[in-house]
Design a protein around this nucleic acid. Structure first.
Lengths: 236, 236, 236, 236
DNA sequence: TATGAATGAGCGTTCATTCAT
DNA sequence: GATGAATGAACGCTCATTCAT
């Protein structure tokens, strides 16, 4: 409220600022927002508590500042990952894999983003949230692209499709965070991609085949989702 | 001293207990777990703060006790809703619609379940969570049923499919809770069902048709998803 | 701001409330508002810090509640003191003496009232201040009475006269509080009364006398201010 | 390191020092000692916070240094104002008017002096306080002069009279600072002077007059206090 | 059973002040 | 001489929880 001095956001010591953010990310991920203490964050960042207030207005502001850098990194990497990939469906598959991979390799960030930030209404009015929207808009673009190129059905609601996309991945990741299952989050990338692709793709004749005048399920899909079956140990 | 909870005998008890739970649900939904105070819950339930501790061990225990009744109600209603519905795909559609309908008509409960309980690790060790599993197992059963009857592809991972199912609905509902969009949560029930059904159903020849020796997209799907187009006002 | 529970002002334990007020008065008097700590007040009152917040909203509110009881006591005693006194001028003398006596016998209260409350703008919007106004209005009444009975000049501004009255006494008392001089605050009651009475009283022929056709100062005043001379040790 | 204050040599120094003092005066007046922050003073003075510590030992020291310059200015002006005025009573009138005028035209200074410095015990051990004593001694001198010339009663305690003088003026000014009443502080200069002069002056036969062998109140006083009546809008 | 009253334990936040540059 | 950066040291305040009645 009262930001005395020239507190907040000096670039001078980006290193110290980053150290605080990193520490905060870890502590928030581990303890949750309210059980996390400034004291612990400060200790982990090797600064005095008061120093945190030189860079961030308050605890909540610190929380909201926490995902920014990683989010940008994710955006850059995503572009890199998608570069050269042809076709919306392939992009979707790549996106899903990358999304899960990135979550997996940034567990604290995932935890903060999904468990703390997402249920927080105030987060919506935050610069960090605006950044996040770039990410989700990318998904929409891919769907649109697919509709234009014909690979994605024109009769689906792409906003609902985006819900499908995000909801599925976030649900999978949430389970991973909460229950440590599966150990390897990307393990289900293919199965997940199969379903999502199925959901949106334009049906093609390759999907059906004729045996003795009967139409059977094509086996093509199987080739991409080998290893997926009901034998996975699922606890719920 | 500590087993008041077990004395189900007296009606007066149950009434007061329910009043507390209802008040708690509302306050938790409105304020979140930590900003909710025992004091406010007590006031809303018209009991003294200490009385709450006669019925619940502590604040967290109260939180975890909060969804139980509604959850049972949901299970009963679900059975009622699915009764007489033929075919896994139709059950899925019905389930989706009912899920959204129930969320919509129990906002506080939805809010507590999705925003507070789900991100809470401790909730997993809770009786209330076991109840919730019955719910999600129902989904698995339907998928299995579909695979047996042939309407659902046998080559999909039904656990991942359940993620798809739950994740999509919860994501949609979360948006509704956080941003009040869409006003009517069931508005997208059909579009959502279309996508999920597409994702899991066994492709059938009806989905393709031949014109001049070429296979085209069947129009059947369209019949069920009338009203679905990209004109929905979506803000993100 | 947020007064959770039924905090503030339960009469149930007026004893505890009084203990807190008394402790607060002493600590405030000794340390000033900001150097006084809730912790010290709690210790002196033999209650937990949190208990203070059961009775008072916050530190400032506690400060403002501090003088009330004594102020009422002063009002009652004043009425008692003035009862039976005839004539506005005699009432003024009595009032002055009592005012100084009461300050002297309630040092902490004096200190808080003059040193902390008076310079605090917010105090003006306080119930305690309204009580104080009864006190100062009493002075006005006496001046009016004197003007009606003829003992006080009709050509003076009684509001300014009240400033004279209050300002003089408060200045004297402030010096006493700050510098412990004079040891006995009532020592100058007579001299002060003489001056204030002189300032407002209707001049009377007794005040002048004729010697050899010349008018001299009457000696009557002297009788009441015996002992007043310039030999007092004054440091400023 | 710690004696920068003594290096009066460089002009640049004095200029910066004055800027700090001026800023401090305003901030202290507006916020009070404790709510004033070094940060705000620094900002207002356009210097860095640390710079303030080059010129002043600490916050309290800065506060005590704050009134000095104005106080000297007041002393000089007072001498100027009193120059050529004949008779103690006239000097008293002039002094009162000038005192109020100076307060009025230096509101921040008044505020700091009366509201912050006066209730502060430590201020008494301060060079600035010694300067202030010159001011109050001047009052004593005038009283003595009046007693010698016969215009002021020899039977009054001049120290008490000084209390009357200072207390009245300070009380009036305090009200003005706290409640902005009256708008023009010098409005009551005459009325105040009348009362104070009445209080101390030697009664003279002109004050009484004879009608039908009876002694009546003289009207002389009225001539000097035109405009004084009970119609002033006073809120308390 | 119900509760009014009391409190222990803790945390975010503020600033005056220091010091290396 | 000037200052940006860092921090130590405090303190008000909140609430979940307990317990005597």
């Amino acid at each position: 409220m009262k930001n005395h001095r020239n507190r907040k956001g000096r670039k001078e010591n980006a290193r110290k600022r980053d150290a605080i953010l990193e520490a905060a990310l870890e502590v928030f991920a581990q303890k949750g927002f309210l059980d996390a203490t400034i004291s612990e964050i400060a200790k982990k960042a090797s600064v005095a508590e008061a120093t945190i207030y030189e860079y961030f207005e308050n605890k909540e502001n610190l929380l909201f500042s926490t995902p920014g850098k990683k989010q940008k990194e994710a955006l850059d990497l995503l572009a890199f990952q998608l570069a050269g990939v042809k076709g919306a469906l392939n992009k979707i598959r790549k996106f899903i894999w990358f999304y899960l991979w990135f979550f997996q390799n940034n567990r604290s960030w995932s935890s903060v983003a999904l468990m703390i930030l997402r249920p927080n209404k105030k987060f919506l009015n935050t610069p960090a949230y605006q950044l996040l929207r770039l990410w989700t808009q990318e998904i929409l673009e891919i769907f649109k692209e697919g509709q234009e190129e014909g690979s994605i059905r024109k009769d689906i609601n792409i906003f609902v499709a985006r819900n499908l996309f995000l909801g599925t991945i976030e649900h999978l990741t949430s389970r991973w965070i909460l229950m440590d299952k599966p150990k390897d989050l990307t393990e289900f990338a293919n199965d997940t991609a199969d379903l999502i692709v199925n959901a949106v793709k334009t049906p093609s004749p390759q999907d059906v085949y004729f045996i003795n005048s009967t139409i059977h399920l094509g086996e093509k899909g199987r080739e991409m989702s080998a290893g997926s079956d009901r034998n996975h140990s699922e606890s719920s």
